[in-house]
Write a protein that binds this DNA or RNA. Structure first.
Length: 582
RNA sequence: GCCACCGUAGCUCAGGGGUAGAGCACAUCCAUGGUAAGGAUGGGGUCGUGGGUUCAACUCCCACCGGUGGCUCCA
């Protein structure tokens, strides 16, 4: 048995130890399932009328330690389905599991916790495997309770899921708790407040973040970078209103499926409007406003614009899941033969952008090619031959860009294949940021055409693409990636000027003007507090450069500069400082 | 939406059936200071909202609003 299996068994056994402990404290509890997880284990329970809370953990852990110290042996035995049904008659979830075993025609296995005298103290239905005795489960800790549906189905009853962690020893537990603490320190919701990047208001509503001046600098820096790269690749900016008639989505085919997730708007008349949840249908209407020639293609539109989706409150999360999200959206209308070039351009933009933001250089991303499910070709709309070509082209273009791609069969949207880039944040959560999606359907729905070389109408292919995804979510990822200490080019404040005393104010004002003229975001922290306190404040605000101005500097010496997090100062001229910030 | 927990000053939090506290932040004054918290004084809260129980509710109960964690792992 290898280490991984041993660990798995240890965790699985721990879930049974917890169940025995909970059974002692709450004899009426009904049991759901309880597997091992990456960090430990969980077990689902039905506590009936008296719910369990984290306040009960102490008592449960105490019982668990008693069970561990008794070092009960785990003994496996096999019984018939009939015997099992009799034994677990009072527990509807166990009965459901036993019926499942019966259908598969297998025998039931039990595990007994056996004491020194050979008596079974606790018995549970379980396929195993387990460690030999309860003394071997290592260091454990109950972590949290959560709701979970029986069999993961929201139509089934809600059970209480108790999570625990198991570790080889106390050091392992301490390391895990430390990791959680570190992740919590980087949480963008905490840093967003501490660094004054965004806020929310009960009067405005949940999932509707407000960006402060500091946060807006970061947003604009991201947006400007994307726009600069896109412009160089032939994209042109468009602007559209944020509401439209529902007719647009009836034509696109989104209405039936998404109307409950939209914000509906009513004006004076009977016309029904909605807040736009996406931009592609709008962009098709710009394309459709003129007769297009094959010579005009590809046509590339882009914009950074807000979309509105009525997410369920429980789905909202800081900046990561919001109800008003700002997309860096873009659409390309092109011919089949141009797909490869266009996809290559988008990959170029994504590579340049994510290299600059530091996400790409870290190499912490994966690329997925979502293609049709070969078993169910009827699920997909559009010409099958075009699908074959497009899937092939995307695969080629990714390979030529040097990307390692994971092929995901059956993950394509019904309207076309796609290439997704997933980046991992500080605590390992994966976020899809860049996406390239081909669409054979929407051009059809909106009857988009161009005139080909022979003077005939032809249907363009549409490419939907985003580089950062949504600015909100991307900011959340960046805040956590940098733990709030942004690189200078996107830092809300790039330099804080700290005059030692009031006699240095005039020099400091001049320096600020000089820096601001050079495009540096420089602020002055006036000497109403001690220098030590002001340095502390600038470091806590994670400002890239703190510049100390005293007699030495006003007397003609170089600037004294402390970089964020540095222990020592550097000497640099104004010009050197400006170029360090460029 | 569902389950659990939480909601007290701008922020982080303590408290508890008899109408409230700390630290930070803020303001004023003193200190004019050279590298991660100088000192003193002061302002600031219908204890999320609405209802109920009670002589009395910020505290207990209910509903609502908001926040956090979870709702993929199959005996």
């Amino acid at each position: 048995m290898n280490n991984e299996n041993a660990l798995f068994n240890m965790r699985h056994t721990a879930s049974h130890v917890m169940s025995y402990a909970i059974k002692m404290l709450r004899p009426d509890v009904k049991m759901g399932v309880g597997p091992a997880t990456e960090m430990g284990f969980y077990q689902d329970y039905d506590f009936g009328q008296t719910p369990l809370s984290v306040d009960d953990f102490k008592a449960i852990e105490k019982k668990m330690r008693w069970i561990v110290n008794k070092d009960f042996a785990l003994q496996k035995r096999e019984i018939s389905v009939a015997e099992a049904k009799e034994l677990f008659a009072g527990d509807p979830f166990k009965m459901a599991l036993i019926e499942g075993i019966e259908k598969k025609g297998e025998a039931c296995t039990l595990y007994d916790f056996v004491d020194g005298e050979g008596n079974a103290r606790y018995t549970d239905l379980c396929a195993g495997p387990h460690v030999a005795s309860t003394g071997q489960i290592g260091t454990f800790k109950l972590m949290k309770v959560a709701g979970a549906y029986w069999r993961g189905d929201e139509n089934e009853p809600m059970l209480t899921r108790v999570y625990g962690g198991t570790f080889a020893d106390a050091d392992g537990l301490a390391a895990h708790l430390h990791m959680l603490e570190e992740a919590a320190k980087r949480d963008h919701r905490k840093l967003g407040k501490e660094l004054d990047l965004y806020t929310t208001s009960d009067l405005i509503g949940s999932g509707l973040p407000l960006f402060t001046p500091r946060g807006t600098v970061v947003r604009d820096a991201i947006q400007d970078e994307i726009m600069k790269l896109q412009y160089a690749h032939g994209y042109r900016r468009v602007a559209i209103p944020h509401i439209c008639k529902k007719d647009l989505y009836e034509t696109s085919g989104h209405w039936q499926k998404y109307k409950d997730d939209l914000f509906h708007v009513h004006g004076k008349g009977d016309t029904e409007f909605v807040m736009k949840p996406m931009n592609c249908p709008h962009h098709t209407q710009i394309y459709a406003s003129q007769m297009r020639s094959y010579r005009d293609l590809p046509i590339r539109y882009c914009e950074v614009t807000a979309c509105y989706r009525d997410e369920q409150p429980g789905e909202l999360l800081g900046l990561s899941r919001v109800r008003a999200l700002t997309q860096d959206d873009g659409h390309v209308f092109c011919r089949m033969g141009q797909i490869k070039d266009e996809a290559a351009k988008i990959i170029d933009i994504a590579r340049a952008f994510h290299t600059k933001t530091g996400m790409w250089a870290e190499g912490n991303f994966e690329v997925y090619l979502s293609v049709r499910d070969p078993e169910k070709p009827e699920k997909y709309l559009g010409d099958s031959a075009n699908w074959d070509i497009a899937e092939q082209l995307l695969e080629e273009v990714a390979a030529e860009a040097g990307l390692k791609v994971k092929r995901e069969e059956g993950e394509a949207a019904f309207y076309g294949p796609k290439l997704d880039f997933q980046f991992a944040d500080a605590i390992g959560r994966k976020w899809q940021l860049t996406t390239i999606q081909l669409d054979f359907v929407m051009p059809d729905r909106f009857d988009l055409t161009y005139i080909n070389e022979a003077g005939e109408k032809e249907r363009p292919v549409m490419i939907h693409r985003a580089i950062a995804g949504s600015l909100e979510r991307f900011m959340a990822v960046l805040i956590e990636h940098y733990a709030g200490a942004f690189p200078a080019w996107m830092a809300p404040v790039q330099a804080v000027l700290l005059p030692v005393g009031q006699q240095h104010d005039a020099f400091t004002d001049d320096l600020q003007k000089q820096l601001m003229t050079a495009g540096v975001r420089a602020e002055i922290d006036v000497p109403t507090e001690t220098l030590g306190k002001r340095i502390r404040a600038s470091q806590k605000a994670k400002v890239p450069f703190s510049i100390i101005i005293g007699d030495t500097e006003t007397g003609g010496g170089p600037l004294t500069v402390r970089r964020y997090g540095a222990q020592k100062d550097e000497q640099m001229t104004v010009e050197e400082l400006i170029s360090a910030l460029a």
